[in-house]
Nucleic acid binder design. Structure first.
Lengths: 175, 175, 175, 175
DNA sequence: GATGAATGAGGGTTCATTCAT
DNA sequence: GATGAATGAACCCTCATTCAT
């Protein structure tokens, strides 16, 4: 019975993730439920309201990012390389979802905390790369993080696309 | 009453621009009207429906951009400098609005045409800069345009902010 | 100036008559005004509100009918023949309009009075025909009037169409 | 909850039928819902929009008519008698509703088909009566059907009222 | 627990009517 | 007196949420 419940929760958030990705935040609860093969009632059993669902999805995505990012940061690689790996990972993650949901999620403390943590993690890596003199030192780490966010959350971003290349070239420390 | 009507139309689109900028596209017609100090009926007299209002605002913004961009392009300056001037102008224009409204405006032919024209204009300037060897030649102009769009439509973009600097450094042709 | 006013009033009621005939009662005041080549304001100067316009049109039509009917009745013809002439006249008159407008006009005293007068006139003619033994005597005149109304207000009724023929054959006194 | 839903659907169409009969097609969805003791949302769950409600009511009425008419036609009675029975049945049915709703229902294929079927059924019965020499042969069956429609859809029509008598006398074949 | 029917507030839109020009 | 812009109540419809089954 517990496993059933978990399964349903999973079905719902998977359906929601997919629909939000495809069609933006303008998807009704009914549609999400039926895409998950369940009734609305069941959806509401798992998520008290729409905001909770959005937050959960945003938080899940951020947590997956954080888990990966922390694991990478713990491996003692050069900062620039960590950055590359994180960027690659991000472009595979539906991080754009967080942007899509942003409006409905702005005031959720969980999401705010996770976002702050993610930004802090990135900032630390950027700082490391600056100390290692592979990333130009004249930009405050926070701003580099902003740039990474923008580049990585573009719809259709890929780790090796031209825009990322340009960004990286712009960030690299002069020889 | 022609002048009054024009004034009201201006009041409405100003209110709409402001509210959309502040709170995204999810603002009701009622709210826009009353922010303009008018009744809904008046709003509907000037804009036949919600889509028309969104389109008008998006189109106006794009037109202002195009007007400036074309004037600059006609001045026979080096491409790189035109780019700088356009970027500066863009960051003063509420071009982010066009992004905000994008979803509700997707199928409007006017907006599609203007967007295409704006992209073509930018692409031409980029190409010129590439011919003049001030902008790296290994990125297709269309993609550079994508990058400019992303950078310029960030909320809070400024012409001299760090992110734009990074982007420009990434785009500059190697000596 | 007086004649201008009369002319405008005429333009309005002509336009209204035409539009109501073509498209039923669901025509807006704005449309009527602009079909008359005037502004709504002018329409409202001549008719205090929508009900007044409907009533005027209904009353005009009924008055024209009454004028004709009374003239005929005054000519000392046999009742059956008067009936025939009235039917013919009715099918040329837009009497169906009165039906079309009926819903919006139900409570207007003027219209009620005129309708009653029209019915009374017809009933008198029917009674005369009954006295003259050309119209069957077993149906109360009021009911014959009801039948005539139904037949004559059909859309597309003509004085010599099959349905009128059947009705007249049904009404004729047995030899 | 299947049974409740069915019951509610019934409540809604009963309320709609009643209100449309009393006050014409100009009744708001809100009013219909609350006359049924339900919220608007429930109404819209059962009928996707106003047109669907009108159509359903019109179609139901027509179907009831057709069911009866076909059963009668299958009984091998003389055509004239079938006609009498159908007329009697019609005057008990709220067929006038179909007329009332006609405007809002004009383009509904279901209603168009049912109307055509009803007319065809009546025409066949008329033709039979003409072959049996009980109904005058000089009127095309389609037109007789038009006459029947007019007579039966009068508000307040009854099978034995004077107007029906007159019509039947008009239709009967001369001896 | 799951289901999906019911609810009703709120959004977009129309149109009779008023009123400044 | 004519004009047409402005008004806002009222309509149709959607959808987040609740609740009976």
């Amino acid at each position: 019975m517990r496993s059933d419940a978990r399964r349903n929760r999973e079905l719902i958030s998977a359906a929601a993730r997919e629909l939000f990705t495809e069609r933006g935040a303008a998807v009704s609860m009914e549609e999400i439920a039926s895409a998950a093969g369940l009734g609305v009632g069941t959806l509401y059993r798992h998520f008290p309201d729409r905001a909770a669902l959005l937050e959960t999805i945003a938080a899940d995505t951020l947590e997956r990012f954080l888990a990966f990012g922390r694991a990478e940061a713990a491996r003692d690689l050069p900062g620039w390389q960590v950055l590359l790996r994180i960027i690659e990972h991000c472009t595979k993650l539906p991080l754009a979802l967080v942007k899509t949901l942003a409006e409905g999620v702005a005031t959720a403390p969980t999401v705010a905390i996770l976002t702050a943590e993610a930004d802090a993690l990135l900032a630390a890596v950027v700082e490391q790369a600056q100390r290692e003199r592979t990333l130009r030192p004249d930009i405050p780490p926070r701003e580099v993080v902003g740039l990474l966010n923008v580049m990585v959350c573009r719809p259709g971003a890929r780790a090796d696309d031209h825009l990322v290349t340009v960004m990286l070239d712009g960030l690299r420390a002069a020889r």
